[in-house]
Design a protein around this nucleic acid. Structure first.
Lengths: 318, 318
DNA sequence: AGGATTTGTGCGTGCCGGTCACAGGGCGGG
DNA sequence: CCCGCCCTGTGACCGGCACGCACAAATCCT
C-alpha cells in the first residue's frame, strides 16, 4: 500500500513551488525525499510527470492534467480533515441525557435552556427514568446518577453532593410530637420505599456511634416524589434529598428533624458516560456545563440551617 | 507524513463491507492491520469514526459524514489513476517529428496517413530541416536521421539501411561516355555538396582495396535534391541515396554507374529520441510504426539491379 | 453451552522511505 | 571567462512505522 496521498502532496508542492528543493524546504525534508517520492509516483503510474533539467522542472503533458486533478484531490483531503478537525471542537449533534425525574426537575430543567443557547448545534434528548433499572445502555450518552456506578467500564464525574434530610410537615409534628433522638422514630409513621429497600435504612450517629435504623410506617411508594408529597401533606416522616425540598424548607412546609444525628448523610450526583479515546465535544461540554452550573451546589451540604443560599429554583428561567 | 489515502481506503472498505475482517480479506491483509489503520485515522483526526462492538462496527455521526467525503475522494483517486494508466497505453498527444526533406518526402509522407488513422488521438507535428544543424534539441520527440548520433544521451533505433549510388542521366552518359572505373570520374563533371564536404569523398573498392575519391565539378549545392534534379537534367554525375532515385532508375531517367566498385556504400536511417524511464506511447508507437512499414526496405540494399521490389511510392494512399 | 468469529493489543520484525554524501550539470556573478 | 552556488539524481545506510502473529475478550450462532 503505497502512500498515494503523500506522494501526490509532494508532487503538488513541487509543481506549485517550481522546484523539488523549495518543496523540500517548505516541508522540512530533503530534496532527495521529494525526488524519490515523485519518482515513485511516476513509476507507479508508469508515466513521466515532470521533465527535469538539472536546474528546473517542467510539467509534461500528462503531468499537467494529472496536476490539476491532483491539486483538487489534495485540497479536498485537506479541507475534509480541517472540517472534521474544526467540527471536533464545536459541540454538535444529538446528545442523549438520562436522569432521574427529581434531578431533572430540580437541576437539569432550570439550566438546560442556557446550555442549548450556548451550544446551538447540539440537539438534546432528555429521558427520565428510575435509577434502578437503567444502565447507560439505555442508549444515552450521559446519565446523571446518584453514586458512581460500579460498572468499571464507565466513567463518572461528580457534579455536586447532596444530603438526605429527615423531614416532616409542621402539621404532622404538631400532632405527633418532635422526635428527640433516632430511636424515637419507631413511634412515628415513617414513609418508606417499596423498591429500593436500602433507602429504608436511615443512617444516624449518636454518641459518636454510627448505625442504621430500619424505619417503617403504613405507606410505601416507589418514588421519592410520592413520599415527598405525602410528607408535605402531613402523613408522616420522610428522608428526602435536600434538593427536593429546598422550597418546602424555606417556606416552612417541611421542617428538618434530628439534624444533629446525621451530619454526614451525603451522597454525590455524578455524570456517568462511556469513556472513549476521542470524547465527542458535546459530551465533554455537557458535563463541564453541569459542573459549572451545579457544582456550587456542593456548598450547601455543610449544615447551615439558618442561612439560606440561592435555591436551585433561582436557576429557572423566567 | 502519514499515509492518509491508505487509511482512508481501508476505512472505506471496512465500512462498505461491514467489518474489519471482510475488508482485510478483500485486501489480503490481517484484520489487525485494518483495525490499526482505522485507529490511526481516528487518532489523527481526533474523532471516533466507528463504534466497534466485538461483533460489528457502526458508523458514528461524524463517521457518516466523513465516510461520504472519504468515499468520494478515494474514488476520485482511483479514477484518476486508472485514467492515467489507461491513457498511458493509448498513444495520444502532440508528437513532434523531425527529418530531412528527402526522407520525409520519400518515406514518411507516404505512410503518415495510415499512422494518423491508426492512432486518432495523436497529433503530429512534422518539421523538416537539414541534417547538419538540427539536434533533437529542436524541440522534437523523434528525429529521423542518418547515422546514430554520437550524443550518448540519445537513443537510436535503426529503421532501414540505404545505399548511395553513383548515377547519371542516359543523356549525359551518351554525351560524355560511361566511366569504367572510379579513376575515370576525374574526367567527368561530378555534382558536389558545398556544405557537407565529406559527401564529396566517394568511397570505392577496386582490386580489393578501399579508398575514397575526392570528386569535383562545376556545380555545388547544399541539398541532395538539387543535385538530384540536375543529374536528371543531364548536368553530371551524382552520388545519391537510392531512395531518392528509385523512380528515376526504374523509369530510366538515371542509370547507375560503377556499381561493382561500391557494393557496401550503405548507411542506416535511424529514429533518434530521448530515452526516458517512462517512454510516452506515442513515441514508442511511432518508432515501431516506422520499422513496421519501412523496415522491409532494408531488403533492397543487396544489389538486385534486375528485380524491382515494391517502390516506396506504393505506400502512398490513393 | 460451546465453538466460531470478530475486534483489539503487545511484541517482534521486515521493509519502506528518509537522511547523508556525492556526482553531474547549468546559470549567474565576479 | 571561469569559478562557484544551487539544482537534481543516485547509492548506501538506517531508523521508525506498519504489518503479521498470537492471544484475549466478547458476542453471535448452532
Amino acid at each position: 500500500m503505497a502512500d498515494k496521498s503523500g506522494e501526490m502532496e509532494l508532487f503538488v508542492r513541487a509543481v506549485a513551488l517550481g522546484s523539488f528543493s523549495s518543496a523540500a524546504r517548505a516541508l522540512t525534508i530533503t530534496p532527495s525525499a521529494v525526488s524519490k517520492a515523485v519518482g515513485r509516483l511516476e513509476d507507479r503510474l508508469g508515466v513521466q510527470l515532470l521533465d527535469r533539467s538539472t536546474r528546473s522542472i517542467r510539467l509534461t503533458a500528462e503531468g499537467q492534467v494529472y496536476y490539476l486533478d491532483c491539486l483538487r484531490i489534495v485540497n479536498e483531503i485537506d479541507e475534509l480533515e480541517r472540517t472534521l478537525l474544526a467540527r471536533r471542537n464545536v459541540p454538535h449533534g444529538r446528545l442523549r441525557v438520562n436522569s432521574s425525574v427529581p434531578i431533572a426537575r430540580r437541576h437539569l430543567l432550570p439550566i438546560l435552556p442556557e446550555f442549548l443557547a450556548r451550544y446551538p448545534e447540539i440537539e438534546l434528548d432528555l429521558s427520565t427514568s428510575d435509577e434502578v433499572l437503567d444502565l447507560i445502555e439505555s442508549s444515552a450518552d450521559v446519565a446523571v446518577r446518584i453514586s458512581p456506578l460500579q460498572n468499571s467500564s464507565l466513567r463518572a464525574r461528580k457534579i455536586f453532593d447532596f444530603r438526605r434530610i429527615v423531614v416532616a410537615a409542621p402539621d404532622y409534628l404538631a400532632r405527633h410530637g418532635m422526635p428527640a433522638r433516632p430511636a424515637d422514630l419507631s413511634a412515628h409513621n415513617c414513609l418508606a420505599f417499596n423498591l429500593k429497600m436500602s433507602l429504608n435504612e436511615w443512617p444516624f450517629i449518636e454518641d459518636g456511634r454510627s448505625f442504621t435504623l430500619p424505619v417503617q410506617g403504613n405507606f410505601r411508594a416507589d418514588k421519592g416524589d410520592t413520599l415527598h408529597e405525602l410528607a408535605v401533606a402531613g402523613l408522616g416522616i420522610a428522608r428526602l434529598a435536600n434538593f427536593m425540598i429546598d422550597d418546602d424548607l424555606r417556606d416552612g412546609r417541611l421542617v428538618p428533624l434530628l439534624e444533629d444525628f446525621h451530619p454526614n448523610d451525603t451522597m454525590g450526583v455524578y455524570a456517568v458516560f462511556f469513556p472513549q479515546k476521542h470524547m465527542p465535544a458535546r459530551i465533554r461540554c455537557f458535563v463541564d456545563f453541569l459542573i459549572e452550573k451545579l457544582g456550587r451546589y456542593t456548598l450547601r451540604v455543610p449544615q447551615e440551617p439558618a442561612r439560606r443560599p440561592a435555591s436551585p429554583v433561582a436557576h429557572r428561567v423566567a
